[in-house]
Amino acid sequence: MQYSPLGSSQEQVSRVCLGSMTWGIQNNQQDANQQIEYALAQGINFIDTAEMYPVPPSGKTYGGTETIIGNWIAANPTRRKEFVLATKIAGSGLSYIREASLISGESIIQAVDASLKRLQTDYIDLFQLHWPNRVSPHFAKHWPGRISFSQTETATEKQQMLEILQALELCIQAGKIRFCGLSDDTPWGINTYLQLSEKHSLPKMVSIQNEFSLLHAKDWPYLIENCVREDIAYLPWSPLAGGALSGKYLNNQVPAGSRWSFEQRQGIFRNTPLSQQAISRYVDVAQSHNITPSQLALIWCNQIEGVTSTIIGATSMEQLKENIAAFAMTLSPKAKSDINLVLREFPVPF
C-alpha cells in the first residue's frame, strides 16, 4: 500500500480510503466488521463516514453508519490508533437533522459531540463539511444555468464561514477533532476558507472530497491545481460513478440489491444515454487490457496528479478485494491512450 500526506496536516493516509455509506442498509454490522478488518490488513489506514449515512438517507437510519463503526471501535479499542477516521456534518436540507438548518458554529459543536458519541471515540481525525451552505455545482448541478451564484450575498457567506472556522477551532482546542476539511465545494470555497484562516489565525482546511470519475472529471484541471498549489488533499468520491463504471447497469439493468435498486435522494442522475455509451466503451477498453471495468476506473483515478486518496465502497467482500487490488496496478501507455479516446468523446456524459 502506498501513502500520501493529507494536505498540510502531513498525516500520512493510504491511497485507498474505505468508504462506509452502505453500512446500515446494504451491509450489516458483520459485513462492516469484515470490511474494516480486511482493509486494515491490506494497509488501508483511512476510513470515511458521515452523520447522514447510510445512503439513501432517512430519519430512520440517520447516524446508523457511525454507530456501526463505533461498535467496531468499542470492540477493538486498542486499534483506534491504526487509522485516520473522517466524518462529515450534514448541511441544510434534511428535516430530521437539526431541522434542515444551515451549518453554523452551534451546529458544528452539536454535530461533533453527536458523532463522537456514535463513533465511541474520544477524537475525530478529520471533520468535514458535507456540503456548503450555498448551493454548489454538485450532484448533477454542474451544467451552466442550473444554479445562480448571485442568489446569496458574498458577505453573508463569508460571515457564516468565519463562524464555522471559529467553532472548528474550539473543537480542535478541546481535542475533539484534529483536522478539518471540505466536501462538494468549489475553488471559491477553498480559497475563501484559506483567506479567512490566515486572516483570523484559524485552522486551515486540509482536504476536499468531491465526485470525480471517468464520467465526471470536471475538477480537472482547475480545482485540482488549486489543491496542489495550496496543499489541499484531493479525495475523490464515487470513482465508479455510483457503481455504473463496473458495467453492471448497462442496458438499463438494475441488479437486485444494488445501489440503483434503492430510491435515490437526487434520482439516478448518472443514467443517461451518453453515460451508457461511455460505460460500454470503457468496459471494452478494460477487457482488451485484461482488467475489470471497476479496476480500470480506479487505476485511472489513482494515477491523476493531485489525487491524494480515492474513496471506495463495496457491498461484498469480492467487490472490496477487486477494488483494493486495483491500487497495486498501473495502466500501460496503450491503456491510457484508449481511455483518453473515450474521455474525449464523452467528457461530460451526465
Rank of each mutant, 00 (worst) to 15 (best):
A335L: 08
N28V: 05
I97N: 07
V13C: 05
N33V: 11
F127Q: 00
M161H: 02
L119E: 02
D338L: 11
W237N: 09
L240W: 00
A111Y: 00
S309A: 12
P293F: 01
K117V: 04
Q26V: 09
I89K: 04
S316F: 03
Y38C: 10
P293Q: 06
K199C: 03
R229F: 13
T272D: 01
D31L: 05
H130E: 10
A90W: 01
C17E: 01
H200P: 03
L119A: 06
I147M: 07
E82I: 12
A278E: 04
A286F: 02
M161N: 01
H142V: 15
L331C: 11
N252C: 07
I89H: 00
Q29W: 09
I311A: 01
K204Q: 10
Y62H: 15
A155V: 11
A326G: 06
W188M: 05
G93D: 07
I312L: 10
P77R: 15
G63I: 04
A233H: 02
E106S: 14
L250F: 07
D122P: 06
T308H: 06
M21V: 11
S288W: 06
L235Q: 10
F46I: 05
A74L: 13
A75Q: 15
E153M: 09
S261T: 11
E99H: 15
Y123N: 09
F149A: 13
A111Q: 05
S115I: 07
E322L: 08
G24R: 06
S92L: 08
A114C: 00
A74M: 14
E345P: 00
V206L: 01
P273Q: 08
I268F: 06
H289E: 11
Q29E: 14
Y234H: 10
